[in-house]
Design a protein around this nucleic acid. Structure first.
Length: 221
DNA sequence: ACCCAGGGTCATA
DNA sequence: TATGACCATGGG
């Protein structure tokens, strides 16, 4: 029987423990979460390198000065004008909340609502930040996740984001501690993205995806 | 030349 | 509620 857990085990066995979301600080994760919106991570790395180079990888530095200069740093990551605004919106909120101090005290559901109130932070970005920066047990739903579980016949595929997230969280490993759950969610999302990258380079590949229907990692059992 | 990437907002019907 | 336009660079 194919379950959320058996898929995880196969991915983990095949790819190993993922070294994912490399960052020197939680704030760097937050910046990366916004910059990676509909953008290849490789391009995001260049933009983050630019910010580090010019010592702008802090809320204060992002908020002060000319927004055009900030946008110029973000150029390699695409959508640089709108992402400059989104980074500022985020930093405005983040600094206003006393950064990690008060935020770490908030209940996960409240913190999630707060994140979603920032213009430019949607559900996936918010969950990236919750899971990889705040270590909260929230599973990230992306296009790959939807496609994989849909192809496996475990979901319809046209559910809304929130419905899918709750489906995953409520049907998976309800008997583990919160710390373990965070660890598993981090690994799982990373493995799904790794798997998709390995097998779905082009859309044509995805539509016939050997990984989902025929791939040995998913069909045996 | 075309397709897509570790999405989200806004205007329109 | 649900589409469509828009944002924009870089690699396959």
């Amino acid at each position: 029987m194919t379950t959320i857990h058996t898929i995880y085990k196969k991915l983990f066995t095949y790819y190993g423990e993922p070294q994912w979301w490399p960052a020197d600080s939680p704030f760097e994760v937050m910046v990366g979460a916004i910059l990676t919106q509909n953008t290849a991570w490789q391009n995001v790395e260049k933009a983050i390198a630019n910010l580090k180079q010019s010592k702008m990888l802090t809320p204060d530095a992002i908020l002060k000065g000319d927004i055009g200069e900030l946008a110029a740093q973000l150029k390699p990551s695409g959508y640089f004008n709108i992402k400059a605004k989104r980074l500022r919106n985020y930093c405005d909120w983040y600094r206003g909340q006393g950064e990690q101090k008060e935020l770490s005290e908030l209940d996960t559901a409240i913190l999630r609502t707060e994140l979603l109130s920032v213009n430019g932070v949607g559900p996936e970005t918010a969950d990236d930040i919750l899971l990889y920066a705040f270590n909260r047990p929230v599973f990230v739903i992306d296009a790959y996740t939807r496609r994989i579980f849909s192809r496996l016949g475990m979901i319809a595929g046209d559910e809304g984001y929130e419905a899918l997230r709750l489906w995953f969280e409520n049907h998976y490993q309800t008997d583990v501690s919160e710390v373990e759950r965070v660890e598993i969610y981090r690994h799982y999302h990373a493995l799904i993205v790794m798997h998709a990258k390995a097998h779905c380079r082009k859309k044509a590949d995805c539509d016939l995806c050997p990984v989902i229907k025929k791939c040995r990692h998913f069909t045996s059992e």
